[in-house]
Design a protein around this nucleic acid. Structure first.
Length: 201
DNA sequence: CACCCGATTATCT
DNA sequence: GATAATCGGGTGT
């Protein structure tokens, strides 16, 4: 468990990490560190829950019916951020990931464990609770101030939003069906670190 | 241009 | 456990 983990690692996840099957990346990106850099504020969090969304074999994916203006990032270079707006209020953060022979795919980041900048996140989320801070895809983007402005940015480069390794291995990982979808519920492409308090459900 | 609805959340019961 | 809130994207007219 990462609770209040303070380890340091500045090693950025290389682009090759994301150039693999989307489902594998969804599992392997658990335990990595998400870093959001704002003016005078650095926010850090550990990725603890994810879901894979693929292409032609995945009716639940935004990319299922082909490329549109909204989903074009899913068809672009791996390692970039795909951010979309949902339910009139919320943004969801994905990292583009797919195997070499696939045209589109992304990993939805569903929950993170907050590490640094917690007071800032509490302000943005209007709660003191550590778990309610980032235990959902729309919650963590609000805490980390991620919106459509971050759509398409390269998360394999040090900048306003990127992902680094933490050196953590041998995590206990659980696998279930994805949340909030009506189709393809039998595909078990949701992953989370077993027992972590930020799991969204 | 109208319609439908969603990879959610907060706030109830 | 159920439901309202809220609005942009996608589709078809």
């Amino acid at each position: 468990m990462f609770f209040l983990y303070k380890g340091i690692s500045l090693v950025i996840q290389p682009r090759s990490f994301y150039a693999r099957d989307t489902v594998e990346v969804a599992r392997d990106v658990l335990g990595k560190k998400l870093i959001r850099v704002l003016a005078g504020q650095q926010l850090e969090a550990i990725i603890v829950e994810t879901e894979a969304y693929r292409h032609a074999d995945d009716p639940a994916s935004h990319a299922y019916r082909g490329k549109t203006k909204r989903t074009e990032v899913m068809f672009g270079p791996v390692g970039h951020a795909y951010v979309y707006f949902i339910y009139g209020n919320w943004y969801c953060l994905n990292v583009v990931a797919r195997d070499h022979d696939q045209p589109a795919g992304a990993v939805l980041i569903r929950a993170v464990e907050p590490l640094t900048g917690i007071a800032f996140m509490q302000k943005k989320r209007n709660t003191q609770s550590l778990t309610l801070l980032t235990n959902g895809p729309g919650k963590l983007t609000q805490a980390l101030q991620i919106t459509k402005r971050q759509n398409g940015i390269d998360m394999t480069k040090k900048g306003q939003l990127y992902i680094t390794d933490t050196g953590k291995q041998d995590l206990q990982i659980a696998k279930t069906g994805r949340i909030g979808i009506s189709q393809a519920r039998d595909m078990h492409w949701r992953f989370y670190i077993q027992g972590n308090p930020w799991v969204s459900r």
